[in-house]
């Protein structure tokens, strides 16, 4: 059981092995400002990523996405557009999925980040990762980590009763293919494995209900 970020207790253990790290981060926040001087003002940033603490010194312009990919070499999180238009960079921060391209690492100082690497490994796949393989929920694989992070969070959001654009009764949120399609629409797949991705998510949601 994990405590989701939406104020409800969910039974879904979406974060797999790193779920235990979902509690509020214990790492102290770094100093809150850059010196008021020139171009090389760097900022200290502490992040807990996939359960592991990282203390970095960054150009404040560094996005969370580039921090992951270039500084921490966690390249599972992808850069598709770098402008919040595709969803390939989706990661889970403090229990919520966000576009890591449109946020600065320094804005997340002291926070908990789960990336695709934190969900599972080739040797030990997260149930959602396994379902994507079984249902061929990808082709080129480039949007895939974002789709999977999003899918994991979407099931949490439905369980937490967060409504969506297609929820008929705002006060009665339930799993349906239509709900998942709408909620996953921030993750573009140009290869268009859409039908298969929905099948994979449906599969995981069903397993969880059993």
């Amino acid at each position: 059981m994990t405590v989701g970020n939406f104020g409800v207790v969910t039974r879904r253990t979406v974060l797999g092995a790193s779920a235990a790290a979902c509690a509020t981060s214990a790492i102290p926040r770094a100093q809150a400002a850059t010196p008021a001087k020139g171009d090389d003002a760097m900022v200290p940033v502490a992040l807990r990523i996939n359960g592991k603490d990282h203390h970095l010194t960054l150009d404040p312009r560094t996005t969370l996405l580039d921090t992951l990919r270039e500084h921490l070499r966690l390249t599972g999180t992808k850069k598709g557009c770098d402008h919040g238009q595709c969803g390939a960079c989706t990661v889970i921060v403090e229990g919520r999925r966000i576009n890591s391209c449109l946020t600065l690492a320094v804005m997340h100082d002291g926070e908990e980040v789960t990336t695709i690497e934190g969900l599972g490994s080739p040797e030990k796949l997260h149930p959602m990762q396994k379902a994507f393989v079984v249902h061929d929920g990808y082709q080129c694989g480039y949007c895939t980590p974002g789709q999977i992070c999003s899918a994991v969070a979407v099931l949490d959001e439905i369980e937490a009763g967060i409504p969506s654009h297609v929820t008929h009764d705002l006060n009665n949120v339930a799993f349906s293919d239509e709900e998942v399609r709408e909620r996953m629409s921030g993750n573009i797949c140009r290869c268009a494995a859409y039908s298969n991705i929905i099948a994979a998510i449906r599969d995981v949601a069903g397993e969880d209900k059993a």
Binding site: F132, D136, T144, P145
Partner: peptide, 17 residues
């Protein structure tokens, strides 16, 4: 199932950048 599937779904397949 694709044999490259586990690498792709875990983000461990390395792309050019």
């Amino acid at each position: 199932d694709r044999i490259d599937g586990p690498a792709k779904v875990t983000g461990s397949a390395p792309y050019a950048y």
